[in-house]
Design a protein around this nucleic acid. Structure first.
Lengths: 144, 144
DNA sequence: GCAGGAATTATGATGTATCATAAAGTTTAC
DNA sequence: GTAAACTTTATGATACATCATAATTCCTGC
């Protein structure tokens, strides 16, 4: 009965994937969560984002991002140096250790994706992605 | 770049939906979370499940379910009476108040689904659901 | 320049996710 | 019958989700 509900399937797919992904990271002896990994990944590309901008990119909220940044910094994967031109912000940079972590996690992530999407054709994935985007759009209140 | 990653879209779709759903429930002045609602819904149909069985049905884990049951009971939406034939378990029943909550939330949930799935055809939904099930299956380690 | 508003970050409160484990009850083997 | 194995539930620890709000700092209009 629950099985017939689309959002149940959606939830199940995402959680199954997250469990698989985290299990494989743990198994490799790497001490990082997939959420932290995602944030670190974004910061590698852009080191000039506000917490709000980071949150938008990883689809979380600012409060969650603030706590993840604090954790990543505490763990030495990220450095935060006060910005002279804006007393509120800091310059966020992935550290050497953070870079090593990203490097170590990368092949695992690729492997996870391959496992999760095994047997799905390119065009199926395209359709899936497009439908998901439409749902997300439907659920997002118009800004104007 | 992130946008091209399927799991990012998956995550985004589910979270958009959850935010929409919770916002509408809050707006109606109803004090319940969608997760609690789901558990309550299951208990209405089956009042003889162990926490582990409930967890399987709502795709959560036993620890989460235990805490949600405690909350629901504290809020008077659920009653838990010790079972004579098994000293570990309790008989879980949705209370009158819980029933009223379910009744109040139901139309909102229907409305949320309609909003989220607007413009998607029946056959598109079928495809989507089938693809999601396959992903979930791929991510679930074989039991044997 | 300065007052009011906006942006940025931090944090409290509450709820859920996950793993691990403890505590208590039940079943099975013998 | 009892010891060992198994079930069931509760809870500790840590992390993320969300809303609200406080505390700074910056910017803008005047």
């Amino acid at each position: 009965m629950l099985n017939s509900i689309l959002f149940y399937s959606l939830d199940k797919a995402i959680r199954s994937y997250r469990r698989l992904a985290q299990a494989n990271i743990d198994r490799a002896g790497l001490d990082i969560t997939i959420d932290q990994w995602l944030v670190l990944r974004v910061l590698l590309e852009h080191d000039d984002l506000t917490q709000h901008e980071i949150a938008e990119r990883v689809f979380k909220d600012q409060a969650s991002v603030a706590r993840m940044l604090a954790l990543l910094t505490k763990r030495g994967l990220l450095s935060a140096v006060p910005l002279p031109q804006d007393g509120r912000r800091t310059q966020l940079r992935v550290t050497e250790q953070g870079q090593q972590m990203l490097d170590a996690v990368h092949p695992i992530v690729l492997d996870n994706r391959a496992t999760a999407l095994a047997g799905l054709a390119e065009d199926e994935l395209a359709v899936l992605q497009q439908l998901l985007e439409r749902i997300a759009l439907n659920c997002t209140p118009a800004i104007s």
